[in-house]
């Protein structure tokens, strides 16, 4: 299939963002970020923040505390927490699941479908389809099911952490999701 102009770059960015919200930072992160560092000031800043290997362990612990717990995490990464009164598996989760199902996709495992990493992956999938309808679907999806809560999440992240890495991640995420949600 033929990729539209600029979409390869976007796909790469989505892959890195997906990784950033899937696992805590580890030794592989600097190399990964170095590949996208040239794609804008925000990427460059993020890559720079992750270069210090001594800081990676601290980033990793903070990442877990912010996003995975244990306990009352400051920054839930599930859409329904923001859209359905603070709980998982709300009606918005089902809507998201329905959007995946339309393309024959379903999340593996037992993590609710509206985790940001799934949603970024879905956007990646649509991007890789390489045709206008898919890109249109991508912007509809991002606008309805990501832009509706990601700004709240990124503000929470910005507020919950003084670490440049996470503040930059918040800004970057906001920018990318905003861009995704704009009509193609």
């Amino acid at each position: 299939m033929g990729m539209l102009t600029g979409e390869t770059r976007k796909l790469e960015q989505l892959a890195v963002l997906h990784r950033l919200y899937s696992d805590a930072p580890d030794a592989s992160l600097p190399l990964l970020l170095s590949r996208v560092a040239s794609q804008g000031a925000l990427w460059e800043a993020l890559a720079r923040s992750a270069q210090d290997s001594a800081a990676l362990a601290t980033l990793s612990t903070e990442w877990t505390t912010l996003f995975e717990g244990p306990g009352r995490i400051a920054v839930p990464l599930f859409g329904s927490v923001y859209l359905d009164h603070g709980l998982l598996m709300g009606s918005s989760t089902q809507e998201v699941l329905a959007a995946y199902a339309k393309y024959g996709l379903i999340p593996e495992g037992k993590i609710p479908a509206d985790h940001l990493a799934f949603e970024l992956g879905f956007c990646g999938f649509l991007t890789a389809q390489g045709h206008v309808d898919a890109l249109s679907e991508r912007s509809d999806f991002a606008k309805r099911w990501m832009w509706s809560w990601v700004p709240a999440m990124t503000e929470a992240l910005h507020a919950a952490s003084d670490t440049p890495f996470f503040r930059e991640l918040a800004q970057l995420t906001l920018t990318i999701v905003q861009h995704l949600s704009q009509s193609e």
Binding site: E12, A15, H18, V36, Y100, L105, G121, F122, F125
Partner: peptide
Amino acid sequence: STATVGALSFWELGHYALAAS
């Protein structure tokens, strides 16, 4: 690669993998 590994794309990998339904 950043976005693909062999035949698999990044959305098919890890804790948050999307698979055929």
